[in-house]
Amino acid sequence: MTDAIEYSGLSKTYGRGKDALTAVRPTTLSVPWGQVIGLLGPNGAGKTTIIKMTAGLITATAGGVRIGGHDIRRDRAEAVRLIGAVLEGSRNVYWPMSAWENLMYFGRLKGLRGAEIRPRAQWLLAELGLWERRHQLVGGFSRGMQQKVAVAAALITDPQILLLDEPTLGLDVEAARTFKDWIARLARDEGKTIVLTTHQLQVAQELSDRIAVIREGEIIADLPTAELLARHAENRFEVRLDAPLDGLRASIPDGATVSEDGIETRIVLPDADTRALYGFLDRLSDTGAPLTAVAKAQPSLEEIFIRLVHDELDEERTS
């Protein structure tokens, strides 16, 4: 069985000669059916360019994309039928049209008949909390509501593959949480294949089965999320307390780093010396501190991302 998405030497260069700008360097990777892959990188790294080449909106300079085995250039119609996309920005749908009209339009654009579109449109709008406002113009909606219509339009044909380029950009906290939960449901309950780009790395960590990091048009890391996190686990211990540090500072070993949010305190010891760890835990026990966890220090995806994108780039420039 072919993979959902296959990139083979995919690259994109704008312009020629000395003015040429390489947006994506030759990229080869595959995304299996049912996988959520987080495509992460700083602004200008090439994420949106890859998404648009995947959707057939721009043409690759070299290499190719296959969607469910269909070449996006030679068999575009069959390939795009498998795809739903929400692109970066706020104009994924038509503002002078109502939510209902948008869904009917995009359904017909993908070759469906009205009788096929209506029940799907009704279900999507109800699920996204827009049914009561289905006949109102999208231009009068909030940013979060407009993005909900965009997601509904992407899902109107029940595509197997979703391309989500910064789907929570510009949304408030509640709307962003709604989208995160919706994406999780699509992956878990419907087995959708999802390519997700986002600057909200905690969201990417929670949703993605796999993480690919792109920097200056080149994929520099591509691993299952758990493996990426494990590879960057630190040879140090982390101790968590269910309380502010307050009078415990005298117990903290030299070289340890402390972070606290007023409720929980996270203490990362300077090394993996088990004798020093036990001694520290004994001192905490004497104070009655509410210990909640002891584990190998595990950086967040955000910390790993910064190391990969910024620290290694600085090393290259100074070498």
Results as ranks from 00 to 15, higher is better:
residue 254 D to E: 15
residue 87 L to A: 05
residue 63 G to K: 10
residue 19 D to C: 04
residue 171 L to N: 00
residue 138 V to G: 05
residue 295 A to C: 13
residue 189 D to R: 14
residue 92 N to S: 07
residue 12 K to P: 02
residue 196 L to E: 10
residue 256 A to Y: 06
residue 6 E to F: 00
residue 167 P to N: 06
residue 124 L to W: 05
residue 223 L to T: 06
residue 163 L to F: 09
residue 281 L to P: 04
residue 143 R to C: 01
residue 82 L to C: 00
residue 265 T to W: 13
residue 114 G to Y: 02
residue 275 R to G: 12
residue 36 V to Q: 08
residue 8 S to R: 15
residue 140 G to I: 01
residue 278 Y to H: 15
residue 70 H to F: 15
residue 233 A to L: 00
residue 127 E to G: 08
residue 51 I to C: 05
residue 58 I to T: 15
residue 257 T to N: 07
residue 106 F to V: 02
residue 75 D to Q: 15
residue 31 V to T: 03
residue 235 N to V: 08
residue 271 D to A: 02
residue 179 F to W: 02
residue 244 P to E: 13
residue 109 L to A: 13
residue 26 P to F: 13
residue 17 G to T: 01
residue 258 V to K: 12
residue 209 D to R: 09
residue 27 T to D: 04
residue 171 L to Q: 01
residue 89 G to K: 08
residue 214 I to G: 06
residue 278 Y to Q: 14
residue 85 A to T: 10
residue 70 H to N: 14
residue 299 P to N: 09
residue 162 L to M: 15
residue 150 A to P: 10
residue 219 I to H: 04
residue 67 I to V: 15
residue 140 G to T: 12
residue 72 I to P: 04
residue 48 T to N: 07
residue 237 F to W: 15
residue 298 Q to S: 13
residue 247 G to L: 02
residue 298 Q to P: 04
residue 33 W to Q: 13
residue 107 G to E: 00
residue 269 L to M: 14
residue 266 R to F: 07
residue 318 T to M: 13
residue 151 V to Q: 05
residue 29 L to M: 15
residue 272 A to H: 10
residue 267 I to W: 08
residue 50 I to Q: 00
residue 156 I to C: 08
residue 113 R to K: 13
residue 125 L to Y: 05
residue 22 T to F: 05
residue 115 A to H: 09
residue 252 I to W: 11
residue 83 I to M: 04
residue 13 T to Y: 09
residue 257 T to P: 03
residue 222 D to V: 09
residue 54 T to L: 09
residue 198 T to G: 09
residue 241 L to C: 10
residue 121 A to P: 06
residue 158 D to F: 07
residue 101 E to V: 01
residue 133 R to M: 12
residue 103 L to C: 13
residue 259 S to A: 14
residue 281 L to S: 04
residue 38 G to H: 04
residue 269 L to P: 11
residue 313 L to K: 14
residue 245 L to T: 03
residue 40 L to D: 12
residue 21 L to P: 01
residue 187 A to Y: 05
residue 225 T to G: 11
residue 316 E to Q: 14
residue 114 G to K: 03
residue 143 R to N: 08
residue 70 H to E: 14
residue 107 G to S: 04
residue 173 V to F: 07
residue 268 V to A: 10
residue 204 A to P: 00
residue 199 H to G: 06
residue 9 G to Y: 07
residue 184 A to P: 02
residue 114 G to T: 03
residue 252 I to Q: 07
residue 42 P to L: 04
residue 257 T to L: 12
residue 3 D to E: 14
residue 158 D to H: 14
residue 228 L to T: 11
residue 141 F to D: 10
residue 134 R to C: 03
residue 271 D to S: 14
residue 149 V to P: 10
residue 289 A to H: 05
residue 264 E to K: 02
residue 23 A to Y: 07
residue 183 I to Q: 11
residue 167 P to V: 00
residue 142 S to H: 01
residue 233 A to I: 00
residue 58 I to W: 09
residue 16 R to Y: 01
residue 216 E to V: 01
residue 238 E to K: 11
